[in-house]
Design a protein around this nucleic acid. Structure first.
Length: 366
DNA sequence: AGTGCCGGGGA
DNA sequence: TCCCCGGCACT
C-alpha cells in the first residue's frame, strides 16, 4: 500500500517542476541559440541572413546610376513580402523587446530572412530567452493563439507599428511574425497518434476510426474532443523536411507533458477497474455502457492520459502556473473521482475500505 | 458546501 | 489491526 502512493507522487512531481522552466524552454532555447544562424542558414543556404539583407543591394544601386526600376522593384517586392505578414498577424510581435535591443537585431535579420524563413523572425527573439527577467511569465513567445496573451498591446496593431520607423524606405522592418507554428491535432487514442491538421478532420477520424460512428454524421456529442489534443508544430521545421521530428520536439509548445503520454499513461486507467468488489453498477470497460455521466466513461479511456493539462491541452499556458503551490504537505488532490463521489454516500458499502475509513482512496488512484 | 484524506483515537 | 471520525486543505 505504502509504495503505491509514493510511487505515484514521484512521477507527478517532476511535471510541475519542468513546467516551471526546466524542459519546456530548453528545446527552444537550444534552437534559439543557433537559431539565428541556423534557422536562416538552413533556409537560405549559404547566404547568411544577418549580414546583409537583399536591401543592401538596393541600397548600393541607389547611389549608383540607377536602377530606379530595380529599386522600385526591390521596394515593391519588399513590401509585398512583408505586408502579408503584417496583415496576417497584426498582433504578432508585440512584446518581444524584453531587453530593449530590438532595433539592434531587427535590421540585421531584416526582411531577407523574414521573407524567406519565418523561422528567423521567430527565433531571433528567443535568445533573449532570458526572458525570465521580465516579470511577465510569458512563455516562449506565444507561438500560437496569436494575440492570446500578448499583454498590453491592444488589438489594433497600433503598438506594433507605432511610428513609421518600420517603413524607412526599403526597410520595412519585418516584424518578427510568430505564426511560424501551425496547430496540428494529434489523436491520443492508444497507439494511434495520428496527426491531422484540422480539428474537424481529427474529430472525424476519431469518430469513425475509434468510436465507430458514421463519418458523415455531422452531429457529434463532442466526445471526440477528449481523444485528441492540439499540437503547435513549427512549420519551418516541417518544411525543412524535418517533419520526422514532429513527435519528439515539435518545437516548443507541444506539451512536454507528452513525452511519456503515448502508451504508459494509457495503461493506468485500467487499473482501478480491477477491483474485485466491483459492484455491478460499475462496468469497467471503456465503451460507456451506462452513459449516466459523460464524464465518467471518458475517465476510463485514453483521455485520462494527459492528466496535467487537464481540460484542454494548452499546456504552455497552463504549465506556467503550477510551480507555486503552497508548500503544504498535502497532495494537490487528484483528478479522479473517488468512491465517495462515484458511488455516493448512499452506497457507501460500495466504497473501497480506504474511502470508508476516510483514507486515501485505493480504488481510484490518481 | 462538498471532497479527499491526514492524524488520532477507540475497540 | 480494524474501524471511525475530527478536522483541515482544497475545490
Amino acid at each position: 500500500p505504502a509504495p503505491a502512493p509514493q510511487e505515484r507522487w514521484g512521477p507527478r512531481h517532476p511535471p510541475p517542476g519542468w513546467g516551471g522552466g526546466g524542459i519546456t524552454p530548453t528545446p527552444r532555447v537550444g534552437d534559439g541559440g543557433h537559431g539565428e544562424g541556423g534557422g536562416c542558414a538552413a533556409v537560405l543556404g549559404s547566404r547568411p541572413c544577418s549580414p546583409q539583407p537583399p536591401f543592401a543591394l538596393a541600397g548600393r544601386k541607389l547611389p549608383g546610376k540607377a536602377g530606379i526600376d530595380e529599386v522600385m522593384a526591390a521596394a515593391v517586392l519588399t513590401s509585398l513580402s512583408t505586408s502579408p505578414l503584417v496583415l496576417g498577424h497584426p498582433p504578432a510581435p508585440p512584446a518581444p523587446d524584453p531587453g530593449g535591443e530590438p532595433w539592434l537585431e531587427a535590421p540585421a535579420m531584416s526582411s531577407s530572412c523574414s521573407s524567406s524563413s519565418n523561422t528567423s523572425g521567430d527565433w531571433s527573439w528567443d535568445p533573449p530567452s532570458d526572458r525570465s527577467t521580465p516579470s511577465t511569465p510569458s512563455p516562449p513567445l506565444s507561438s500560437h493563439v496569436p494575440g492570446a496573451f500578448l499583454p498590453a498591446p491592444p488589438p489594433d496593431e497600433g503598438p506594433d507599428e507605432p511610428d513609421g520607423t518600420h517603413f524607412v524606405f526599403g526597410e520595412p522592418i519585418p516584424r518578427k511574425r510568430k505564426n511560424s507554428t501551425k496547430v496540428m491535432f494529434k489523436c491520443l487514442w492508444k497507439s494511434c497518434g495520428k496527426v491531422l491538421s484540422s480539428s474537424s478532420g481529427m474529430q472525424k477520424h476519431i469518430r469513425t476510426v475509434h468510436l465507430g460512428r458514421k463519418a458523415d454524421l455531422e452531429q457529434s456529442d463532442g466526445e471526440e474532443d477528449f481523444y485528441y489534443t492540439e499540437l503547435d508544430v513549427d512549420v519551418d521545421s516541417l518544411t525543412d523536411g524535418l517533419s520526422s521530428l514532429t513527435p519528439v520536439s515539435p518545437t516548443s509548445s507541444v506539451p512536454p507533458a507528452f513525452p511519456g503520454t503515448e502508451a504508459p499513461a494509457l495503461l493506468s486507467p485500467e487499473l482501478p477497474l480491477a477491483s474485485p468488489l466491483s459492484p455491478p453498477a460499475r462496468p469497467p470497460v471503456p465503451p460507456p455502457p451506462v452513459a449516466m455521466t459523460p464524464a465518467v466513461p471518458r475517465a476510463w479511456h485514453p483521455w485520462v492520459a494527459p492528466p496535467h493539462p487537464t481540460p484542454t491541452p494548452h499546456p504552455r499556458d497552463v504549465s506556467v502556473t503550477p510551480p507555486s503551490r503552497s508548500p503544504s504537505r498535502r497532495k494537490p488532490r487528484g483528478e479522479a473521482k473517488k468512491c465517495r463521489k462515484v458511488y455516493g454516500m448512499e452506497n457507501r458499502e460500495m466504497w473501497c475500505t480506504a474511502c470508508r475509513w476516510k483514507k486515501a482512496c485505493q480504488r481510484f488512484l490518481d
